[in-house]
Computed example of a mutant assay.
Amino acid sequence: MMSNLFSVFDPSTSTLSLPLNWTSTFLGLMFIPTGMWLIPSRHSMTWNLLTTKLHNEFKTLLGKESKGSTFLFVSLFSLILFNNFLGLFPYIFTSTSHLIMTLTMALPLWVSFMMFGWINNTNHMFEHLVPQGTPTVLMPFMVCIETISNVIRPGTLAVRLTANMIAGHLLLTLLGNNGPTMAQSLIWVLIVAQILLLILESAVAVIQSYVFAVLTTLYSSEVN
């Protein structure tokens, strides 16, 4: 019995005084068959097709001078997708539902983009602060607005992923806790609702990892 609804998201939960929650980030490697790494199976062919499609899309967003940087964003997509799906298994800690994980991914990338842009393309970065066609009177306000929107980018990236992961898991937990108190005739309704929510969460896991990777790619393309 949970003492608190949010205890399932508590990263300090431990067993034998060992913080085991964060090990779920790497736990998925245990479930991948060894043959997947050695033989071109259907799993590896499907994954190669997906990463190739992502590589081509990110290359289009970054332009001709991407110089292999698409692999960084494909790896970022893979990491987030991997952890999002792991969180759908029972009793496995969802690391992407915590800001400490999502900010660790978003903040260093944004800082590196800003440092690269302001050091190498200073004039280009100043041009981004004032959109084309802005009246002279509104220019100071547009600089403030663009600066604020630029500064909060890593926060919005992290909060978006965290909120979407927590929302679905909380709904699944709330419905699941009502099972013992429900009438037997309504149990099947609850089971069907849980299955549908699980399918929805699977789609959210893919979509949110894709959105995070694409937005990071777009932020990178703006500093070139």
Rank of each mutant, 00 (worst) to 15 (best):
S95F: 07
T96W: 01
S97L: 02
S97W: 09
S97I: 06
L99P: 02
I100T: 08
T102Y: 10
L103S: 06
T104V: 02
T104N: 14
T104F: 14
M105G: 00
M105E: 03
M105W: 06
A106R: 05
L107P: 00
P108T: 00
P108R: 01
P108S: 01
P108M: 02
L109P: 03
L109I: 14
L109W: 09
S112C: 06
F113T: 01
F113E: 05
M115Q: 08
M115R: 12
F116G: 03
F116L: 11
G117Y: 11
W118Q: 08
I119T: 13
N120S: 12
N121F: 06
T122V: 08
N123H: 10
N123A: 14
N123T: 05
H124W: 13
H124M: 13
M125Y: 01
F126Y: 14
F126G: 01
H128M: 10
L129F: 11
P131R: 12
Q132S: 14
T134I: 04
T134C: 05
T134W: 00
T136G: 08
T136A: 15
T136W: 14
V137C: 04
V137W: 11
L138C: 01
L138S: 07
L138I: 08
M139F: 09
M139P: 01
P140T: 03
V143S: 04
V143M: 07
V143H: 03
V143F: 09
E146S: 13
T147A: 09
T147V: 08
I148M: 10
I148Q: 07
I148R: 10
I148H: 12
I148N: 01
S149V: 06
N150A: 11
N150Y: 05
V151H: 00
R153F: 05
R153I: 10
R153W: 04
P154K: 00
G155P: 00
T156Q: 06
T156P: 02
A158G: 03
V159L: 12
V159F: 15
V159R: 08
R160C: 04
L161K: 00
L161W: 00
A163Y: 12
N164F: 10
N164L: 13
M165S: 15
I166G: 02
G168K: 04
H169V: 11
L170A: 10
L171K: 15
L172F: 07
T173G: 09
T173H: 13
L174F: 15
L174T: 08
L175Q: 04
G176S: 15
N177R: 12
N177F: 15
N178S: 11
P180N: 03
M182I: 05
A183I: 12
Q184P: 00
S185L: 08
S185R: 08
S185G: 10
L186P: 03
L186Y: 10
V189R: 02
V189E: 09
L190Q: 08
L190A: 05
I191P: 00
V192E: 01
A193D: 03
Q194W: 04
Q194R: 05
I195E: 06
I195D: 05
I195V: 15
L196V: 10
L198G: 11
L198I: 06
L198C: 09
S202H: 03
S202R: 06
A203E: 08
V204M: 12
A205W: 04
A205K: 03
V206F: 15
V206Y: 13
